[in-house]
Write a protein that binds this DNA or RNA. Sequence first.
DNA 1: GTTAGCATGTAAGGAGTTACATGATTTT
DNA 2: AAAATCATGTAACTCCTTACATGCTAAC
Lengths: 200, 200
Amino acid sequence: MTRRGAALEMAVLGLLHDAPMHGYELRKQLIVLLGWGRVLSYGTLYPALKELVAGGFLDADPAPGSTGRNRIVYALTAAGKERFRELVDETGPSSWDDDNFGVHFAFFARADSQTRVRILEGRRSRLEERLERFRTSLVRSRERRDAYTLELQRHGLESAEREVRWLTELIDTERAGAAPGSSTRQAATTHTSTTTKETT
Amino acid sequence: MTRRGAALEMAVLGLLHDAPMHGYELRKQLIVLLGWGRVLSYGTLYPALKELVAGGFLDADPAPGSTGRNRIVYALTAAGKERFRELVDETGPSSWDDDNFGVHFAFFARADSQTRVRILEGRRSRLEERLERFRTSLVRSRERRDAYTLELQRHGLESAEREVRWLTELIDTERAGAAPGSSTRQAATTHTSTTTKETT
DNA sequence: GTTAGCATGTAAGGAGTTACATGATTTT
DNA sequence: AAAATCATGTAACTCCTTACATGCTAAC
């Protein structure tokens, strides 16, 4: 029970809940799912899958499909679905960690409104705490800081404040009983039209 | 030569370049220096210091000062100053990594303008690459995504775009031969006045 | 005089990466 | 038939955290 990254566990279970997949495909989906610009490596994924199989959350079937190659298709077991539900319903500190918040958000559609609000609020207070501590330490030590250090801190502060405002908006929307992005914005695809160079 | 976190190494050398310090104090400074809301632990810091001493970059003096307690004050050696200079002048990919960029930026005042521009541009292209890949993958798979997934991705995209704009502004400022924050903005402390709730 | 905070360290382990090893399938 | 890319895995190593162990000093 080596506690293999809770975020990864939840993401894997959530994706396989939608549709069974083999590891290679799963990895690509995982990378897209969250802002994870970082590449999730096989050295992380395969051992994690192995453990989930050992724990009885996944079934591993040597794919009989398509061309009969050596792929292994993973699918959620009943225990896996139950485990995913537990994770989705979790509203403790672990759900608003830097690492876990993104995954929880990605599967918000599976949670009920109360859960969503609790997680969003938890996340917001965590950020506000950090912000507060940061501001105080800035005030305490403003001697001898050059323009670049100041700019770095100003930018950090601004980003964090923006994040807090984003969360506040989401909380308000949620309380009003609506889905995000339904009012003002066009959701995600305003840009995509230009710059479609395929430099792979 | 275990390659102990380049970011930590540079931050330690940079801070001790300004003023000798003992580990406990150093840790607090390190946490403030960057947006590091995360707590840098002693289990990371002390072994790192040990290694820098072993490498000849730091001198460790049992503090004879103040009350004669058991503190160890670290100071840069000549080799340490040289090493720091190397790190400051470095403009390769390592200088625009997620992990290292912040530290390099924090010590920008020590680098010359050319170095600064190179690092800023490197950082920007790295972010733009990521953005491009992200946008393409969004277009490729817009089926079956609920409002929350879309909102998460929209927000991620927006943050990254904002970051790129920030870098562009800095590059322009740098090319014009000015320091950041000198034109429009008031640098860092515009907020601090409101919201001073002390809910610890 | 005891609690809080200063100060230094070590051991174990968690969460991941890189590099390697291997082979099947598809594309050129 | 060669090259690309699909696909699965392991071993070694990195960087960091948590938890522990120790003792000194300041404040209440």
